[in-house]
């Protein structure tokens, strides 16, 4: 446990001593701000039947931040260590491969959560000036945060998996971005196959992350929407672990 916590702290420290870390924070802050301004313009002076979190989620800024930030946050996790050689000094200390993968994932997820903290401030500002109406409450905010965390977990684990495959950060970010966009686009593939009864459309519907996130933002928490991201996260972390272990395969 001590080694795990030490590694998590080191991972987080790495973000705050790198140019990439601050760039990601700044861009996410800018996009969050733009999204907030757009939403204020939309709701200004007129009633809306939808919860404010759903309005925020509908403008796609969420996905832009997620798809861009995930590769930037995770590309360094293994690729940088392999490139500089510190991977060798890390793996010859008494830490398990599992601890290393878990710590890198936790560090990335914590940094990802930090990206969304301004959203909380935005929501509180809206609540303060808009009054505590039924369209906006802490339950909704909680379910949206839950969605952001779960979907973020998928993208962070995917990015870490991509990073474990290569020693080049650029290649890692490209693999992560390509896989991330593909996963996101499956949500739209589902719409095209909606009338088809085949098992393919059922599978594509099940992996419709956009629909699941819509549910979280609207305050509806479906079991499928929880199981899918958790399964995908576990799958990518398992694959990462296998890649890390592969150096010890005979």
């Amino acid at each position: 446990m001590q080694a795990y916590l030490t590694l998590v702290r080191r991972e987080l420290g790495g973000f705050f001593t790198s140019f990439t870390g601050y760039t990601v924070l700044a861009v996410a802050l800018l996009l969050n701000g733009l999204s907030f301004v757009g939403m204020i313009g939309y709701v200004n002076g007129r009633p809306t039947p939808e919860p404010i979190t759903e309005l925020y989620y509908q403008n796609l800024f969420f996905w832009i931040i997620l798809l861009m930030a995930a590769p930037a946050i995770t590309m360094r996790s293994f690729a940088l260590e392999k490139d500089t050689g510190t991977f060798e000094t890390l793996m010859t200390t008494p830490v398990s491969d599992r601890q290393v993968v878990a710590a890198k994932f936790t560090g990335a997820l914590i940094f990802y959560v930090l990206l969304w903290l301004p959203l909380l401030a935005n929501a509180l500002v809206l609540r303060h000036f808009g009054g505590a109406s039924g369209a906006f409450d802490f339950g909704l905010l909680g379910s949206t945060a839950c969605g952001i965390l779960l979907i973020g977990g998928v993208y962070m684990s995917l990015g870490i998996f991509a990073s474990s495959l290569t020693r080049s950060q650029v290649t890692a970010s490209m693999i992560s971005f390509a896989l991330g966009v593909t996963l996101f686009m499956l949500s739209f593939a589902g719409a095209g196959l909606a009338t088809n009864e085949s098992w393919v459309s059922a599978v594509i519907e099940a992996v419709n992350l956009r629909r699941h996130m819509e549910g979280f933002a609207g305050g509806v928490i479906d079991t499928r929407a929880i199981v899918l991201p958790l399964s995908l996260t576990a799958l990518f972390l398992f694959l990462t672990l296998r890649v890390v272990e592969s150096r010890r395969w005979k």
Binding site: A3, R10, S18, T86, E88, L90
Partner: peptide
Amino acid sequence: RRRIGYMPENNPLPPEMRVREYLKFRARLK
């Protein structure tokens, strides 16, 4: 691994860490 201290060829180190901070990190890791 608990019983060895290993310095690989080319001695890879994280340039962004301070000497004491790095050694402390490694000691805790060990």
